[in-house]
Structures are given as C-alpha cells and as structure tokens.
C-alpha cells in the first residue's frame, strides 16, 4: 500500500512535467484561443492571479490540450498498449478540430506520453498509476487555488520566454 501511493505520486510528477513542457512549448499561455478562454483569464486576473497563467487555464478548460492528451494516453496504454495510445492521440486530434484549435499541443503531447508511459510500465509502474497521477496533476493546476496556480504558470512562462 505505501509503495503504491509512492508510485502514484512519482507518476503524478512525471505527468505534470510532461503536460507542462508541451503546453509551454506550444505557447498556450501566450493568449486565449477562443473568447471564453480570454474571459476566464480576465476573471482570474481580477481575483488577484496572473494574466498569462489565466490564459493557460482558460485554454485547458476550453479545448483538449496536452493534459487531456496525457490522460487519454494513459487510458489507452492501460487498455491496449501502444496501439491504444495512438488511437487516443487520434481521438484527441479530432476533439481539437471540433473545438477550433490547431491541435498540435494535444496530439504531440499524447504521442510522447504514450511512449513515456509504455517505457515506465516496463520498469515496475502500472498504467493505472498514470491515470490517477494525471488526475492529481490537473487538480494541482485547476482545482486547488486559481491565484497560486496562475502565478506558478506565469513564473514558468517568464522563464521560457
């Protein structure tokens, strides 16, 4: 039981690093993709958060980005191995197109997460660890405190640009 919890926490750190790296690489915190994302960003800023962090939170809410790609890749690898992950990447691409998004962040994040998760499953991890880990990772961004999360994303975004 304690080693299961430890594995889930390590998997959460891996998923967090993966989706944050892809979102920052494809410049999600730069601006809101749709008008709803911009509205959420201004709401977060009005409550004391940072603007670019708010843009990224709005983009995560309003189209499937690398975090959704990581979660669906974990589900796909848990069910069907590498082919399942690639099928999930195709679903993420279709979902991105439905939501008026180019879809680079979600698709590349999903394919990279498929191979990372499959590789880590060979050395002792279980695929369900990554599903629970991704849910914990998205909880730390969206679900605990919008002000602190947006300031953290802002700091990472300044470091990248």
């Amino acid at each position: 039981m304690p080693e299961d919890l430890l594995r889930i926490l390590v998997a959460a750190a891996v998923c967090w690093a993966n989706f944050m790296a892809f979102d920052l690489f494809w410049k999600l915190p730069l601006e809101g993709g749709v008008s709803g994302a911009t509205a959420i960003a201004h709401e977060v800023e009005r409550k004391g958060g940072a603007l670019h962090g708010g843009f990224m939170m709005g983009n995560i809410v309003s189209s499937p980005d690398a975090s959704a790609g990581t979660l669906l890749a974990a589900c796909g690898v848990f069910i069907a191995g590498i082919p399942g992950g690639l099928l999930a990447a195709m679903c993420v691409y279709v979902g991105n197109r439905i939501c008026h998004d180019p879809g680079y962040a979600g698709t590349t994040g999903c394919i990279a997460a498929t191979f990372i998760i499959y590789g880590l499953c060979q050395v002792g991890f279980v695929a369900t660890d990554f599903i629970a880990g991704m849910v914990i990772a998205i909880l730390t961004i969206q679900g605990v405190s919008a002000v602190h999360a947006s300031r953290l994303i802002e700091r990472l975004w300044k470091w990248r640009s």
Partner: peptide, 12 residues
Amino acid sequence: TLESNAIASTIA
C-alpha cells in the same frame, strides 16, 4: 470540453 467552451463563450 465542448460544453465548457460553449458556456464560457456565451458568457463572454
């Protein structure tokens, strides 16, 4: 996601 997108865009 599409639902959240539509709600946020309508409010905006």
